[in-house]
């Protein structure tokens, strides 16, 4: 579950942004829509604890993230929040398996090859276990990014423009995968995007202006 109350953020040399309060329970999906420059990514970073709000609070699984800092915040984020970005970036020197193992290690979780295989199988890319991420197709990279976000069974899955660069077919495929993964692990799914195609998939929506 994720809940944000009256968040505001001040850029160092920019405008002050206020965001509507929001709540997304376990297994629920929330779509945050808005045009470019309206602060979608800033809101996502606030929800993930990457940015510190000027005011307001963010609760993840009943933990007020704004009260955490330093190592505690890093650890909490690694364990309770899965993040997916528009471009799938990985540690290039590592294979798919090693990238997922690193995600487990950094979150302080036990490294488990069976769990990695299980999640890759659920995403139909188990055969790419030992591949270098650079050698994967864009679609495969997107699936590995989802696997990495879900590997520690986070309570919240945050996705930043996950479908913007995809055609309609791949867009549908990715959004369905995200929903399946979040539902199967009882996680809340929050997507921030300007991609209007997603409106039909997630009825629970907030429009940023």
């Amino acid at each position: 579950m994720i809940r944000a109350n009256d968040l505001t953020y001040n850029y160092v040399r920019g405008p002050s942004l206020s965001f509507p309060s929001l709540k997304c329970d376990n297994k629920e999906k929330l779509l945050i829509l808005g045009n470019s420059g309206c602060g979608k990514t800033t809101l996502l970073h606030l929800l993930a604890g990457i940015l510190k709000p000027k005011a307001g609070s963010v609760y993840v699984d009943d933990q007020d993230m704004t009260s955490l800092s330093g190592n505690n915040l890093d650890k909490f984020r690694g364990k309770h929040i899965g993040l997916i970005f528009q471009s799938s970036h990985f540690i290039k020197s590592l294979t798919v398996k090693e990238n997922l193992m690193l995600a487990q290690n950094l979150a302080g979780e036990q490294q488990s090859i069976p769990l990695i295989k299980e999640i890759l199988t659920s995403l139909n890319i188990e055969h790419k276990l030992d591949s270098k991420t650079e050698r994967l197709s864009v679609g495969e990279q997107q699936r590995v990014a989802i696997a990495r976000a879900m590997i520690n069974a986070p309570g919240v899955l945050l996705a930043d423009e996950p479908t913007s660069a995809l055609d309609d077919k791949n867009c549908e495929s990715v959004i369905k995968l995200l929903q399946e993964q979040a539902s199967s692990r009882d996680a809340s799914l929050v997507i921030v995007t300007h991609d209007a195609r997603l409106k039909s998939f997630i009825p629970n929506q907030i429009l940023l202006s």
């Binding site: 993930a48 990457i50 330093g70 190592n71 890093d74 650890k75 984020r77 690694g78 364990k79 993040l83 970036h89 990985f90 540690i91 690193l102 995600a103 950094l106 979150a107 302080g108 990495r148």
Partner: peptide, 10 residues
């Protein structure tokens, strides 16, 4: 990314 995944600055 490592920071996002839970890595500390140290």
């Amino acid at each position: 990314l490592m920071r996002v995944m839970g890595s500390s600055q140290a």
